[in-house]
Design a protein around this nucleic acid. Structure first.
Lengths: 221, 221
DNA sequence: CTTGACAATATCGTATACTATTTTATAATT
DNA sequence: AATTATAAAATAGTATACGATATTGTCAAG
């Protein structure tokens, strides 16, 4: 018990908590794109000074959730269509890799767990929880690959896209088509058909991407 | 001239400079794995207080170059074999995607530029400059894809691996086999054979990965 | 000489305080 | 009334200061 002190993952105290809280609010859409993040206000809310708040915001900057501009502080980022497309392209590359690595290691229990998550998704109406379950389903298929850093990145990208998806998640058509795609992926995994699984995964991400893009470029009005 | 103030990329002042300096020293191996990064010392070197130094270190933490441990500050990270393998897997996924997107847009000028970089690499003896040129060559093949965020990530991963490659770069065999692989990729691009280009790129990264792994798991002694 | 307890020192993490910049409010001018 | 100029307030960014933790050094006991 002498050399496990370098906890590479989450050693920090309050900074992490602040980052988690702000991150969650951005993911959930409570903090909207372009909105400034007042350091004093956040500091007061957590009963700390500005310094840990700033460090938390720098962390979120690295995740692409906020941007700093000199002497004007941090604001919640907004993704351009090009950036969103790029994010999905990156996700596709990484998730396909993860699935292919995980595929030979997928157990019956994993597939069963995926099935249960899909059932839960069918029943879920709350968009935030839907988004969480959605990620859990994907994560179930990738976790056996044992690629923690890739998973961290994909998760970040997933939730970063999710705050835009929120508009869509209300739409039941989106949910049902998304679920069909999920089931296609899971079935292919169960049948041991990795080509099909990969194909359906790519289709799934491609569909989400193009739907989001259509929504962004023609914003409701 | 009223709405271009939100410079998403590099708005900060001294923090960025500090991060750049420390990052460069880690990349160049001047700061070795496990080495603690004394905040007061760095602060004194730049004539600032600890606060901007800490923010710079948090940035580097996000890049995976340093790790914090509670009340013990930041140290330069060291990659486990598993982490290194994962990094190369991620790089392969992303670089293949980038190459495939860039491929139809590659111009004669791009290929010519790549050729010149390979010539420069042949002549280069300094490992740091070799590493820079190496990245420039790869970047030349990916830039037309117009994927800035992917490029940023891959660049980070490239240099993060480079600090381990340094041991290898002294070895002329490594350089020459690496250059052969580079030329194979470039030739395939010139011939318009994307399958071959992709294949050679994957081989190239796979070779580097396994050589590094062999070195890490059996560390000289 | 080695080990353990305690003190001294070093270092970290953050609250406070201060300056610089930006934003908002107010007044002045056309 | 609209627009510019000026002052006040708000906010950001960082230096200083200080308590907390970790590390190192010293000494006593075995």
């Amino acid at each position: 018990m002498s050399k496990d002190h370098l906890t590479t993952s989450f050693p920090n105290i309050s900074v992490e908590e602040i980052a988690n809280a702000v991150r969650a609010e951005i993911w959930q859409g409570k903090l909207k794109s372009g909105q400034p993040l007042r350091q004093d206000e956040i500091a007061a809310r957590f009963g700390v000074s500005k310094i840990p708040v700033r460090e938390a915001l720098v962390l979120l900057k690295a995740e692409g959730l906020v941007a700093f501009s000199k002497n004007r502080g941090a604001t919640v980022t907004s993704l351009s269509p090009a950036e969103l497309e790029e994010m999905y392209l990156i996700r596709t590359a990484l998730e396909v890799t993860a699935l292919q690595r995980a595929f030979p290691k997928l157990t019956i229990a994993d597939l069963q767990h995926g099935e249960e998550l899909l059932a839960a998704l069918d029943a879920e109406r709350n968009v935030t929880r839907w988004s969480d379950l959605n990620w859990q389903f994907h994560a179930t298929l990738y976790t056996p690959a044992n690629l923690p850093r890739l998973m961290e990145w994909v998760k970040t990208l997933h939730y970063n896209a999710a705050r835009y998806l929120i508009f869509y998640l209300a739409d039941l058509d989106f949910q049902s088509s998304s679920q069909k795609e999920h089931r296609a992926i899971l079935s292919a995994c169960r049948e041991g058909n990795i080509q099909a699984a990969t194909w359906f995964l790519q289709q799934h991400l491609g569909t989400a991407s193009s739907q989001l893009l259509a929504h962004l470029t023609k914003p409701t009005q």
